[in-house]
Design a protein around this nucleic acid. Structure first.
Lengths: 208, 208
DNA sequence: CTGAAACCTGAACCAGGATTCAACTCTGGA
DNA sequence: TCCAGAGTTGAATCCTGGTTCAGGTTTCAG
């Protein structure tokens, strides 16, 4: 009975669009920011240029975002979601966790190759918005850990240290994404995924 | 017969110290820069503050480095070397490649825990000096690849895709370093290394 | 001892770019 | 049709912080 009808009591002076028009503008700015930061990085990226790309005045930018860092954070959240949405279905569609891992990596690599900006932005967030970066990877790692533990329940993987395994596999994927997604596109993503799958699945120990 | 004795024909206007005194100053500035960039990151780090930490005038800084980016690059090279120098011996001292991998990871984690600045700087170089970053990881990956191929020759590891394996393992180590070296020190490094070793060595496939 | 090269000094300069703001235009409900 | 609120505009402000520069000080070979 304390807070009344007046729209959004706490976050009163917030910058949420109240209209379809506003929503559209926010989306446009966000995309422009993705392009700008993707190309020039956070610090060489400029608000003026973002506004220009968006075909909008600088003032409009500040109508929707408090600061340069604010857009960047919004972007990180946006992308974190996009990657997950793209990759997770591929994992789930697979018959078992291990081949799911393979499908997931292939999907991830494909995604990276077509969304280099996004990839770079998430990585740079480590230095611009550490908490956002951490949040992203911690949540992904947790997803991995539970998923693996479940797979163990079904007898699809061996027992082991879920936490370490989750971070290890995640790191693996990220670096393979960097190398074979961003830097070097000469090899097919399926190929890479297969090789990585073999490693994760059977390890390096010599066949006995 | 074109270039004569005059000291350093090509790199004439370079900034290499010609004296022990100068050398000392460069070292001091480099250390101050490591501390500054380690704490504040590249962009929030300032030359003025670096000079202050070093107990040196701003002008002196510019006697030895052309720009902010220049020190940063020098730092990355310096650290790339340091990490390698610290870790490689541990790998070589092991009886075989696979247990070497374990020792190497443990050493790496220990190093990270005591040199968080360095770790952060190398990572940030991806955005400040991409080529330096690339050079660092490409060279490490190459080291891995050849080392693994050699181990295969001795029958210590199975056959496989060396390039993918190298990048995968490197990524694994980097992320484990981030998680258990920088962010979370609750677990012993030996512990982490053991778990990672088990993963790399035998994989996730259920025991048959 | 001496002078020239090597170093050091830090106030002042300046560019780039984030942020502000006062006025203007749109839009949709009554 | 009308207008209040929602959006838009972009020149002007402001400030941070990298870089310069015109001398001083130290060092050391001869």
């Amino acid at each position: 009975m304390q807070q009344q009808a007046p729209p959004l009591p706490v976050a009163a002076a917030d910058k949420t669009p109240r209209t379809a028009r506003g929503q559209r503008t926010v989306r446009i700015i966000l995309d422009a920011a993705a392009a700008e930061f993707g190309e020039r990085g956070y610090h060489d990226g400029s608000i003026a240029r973002i506004a220009q790309r968006a075909g909008v005045a600088i003032g409009s930018f500040y109508t929707w975002f408090d600061s340069k860092e604010a857009v960047f954070r919004a972007l990180v959240a946006d992308m974190s979601r996009q990657v997950r949405e793209h990759v997770v279905p591929h994992i789930l569609a697979a018959p078992d966790r291990l081949s799911g891992e393979r499908a997931g990596l292939a999907a991830f690599l494909d995604f990276v190759r077509t969304h280099k900006a996004l990839y770079r932005i998430i990585d740079e967030s480590a230095f611009v918005a550490e908490d956002a970066y951490r949040a992203h990877y911690v949540s992904v790692a947790e997803g991995y850990a539970t998923s693996l533990a479940q797979a163990f329940g079904k007898g699809e993987v061996s027992d082991g240290d879920w936490q370490v395994r989750a971070w290890a596999i995640m790191g693996m994927n990220v670096f393979l994404g960097l190398k074979f997604g961003v830097w070097d596109e000469t090899r097919s993503t399926a190929d890479i995924a297969a090789a990585a799958h073999a490693l994760i699945s059977d390890g390096l120990a010599p066949r006995r």
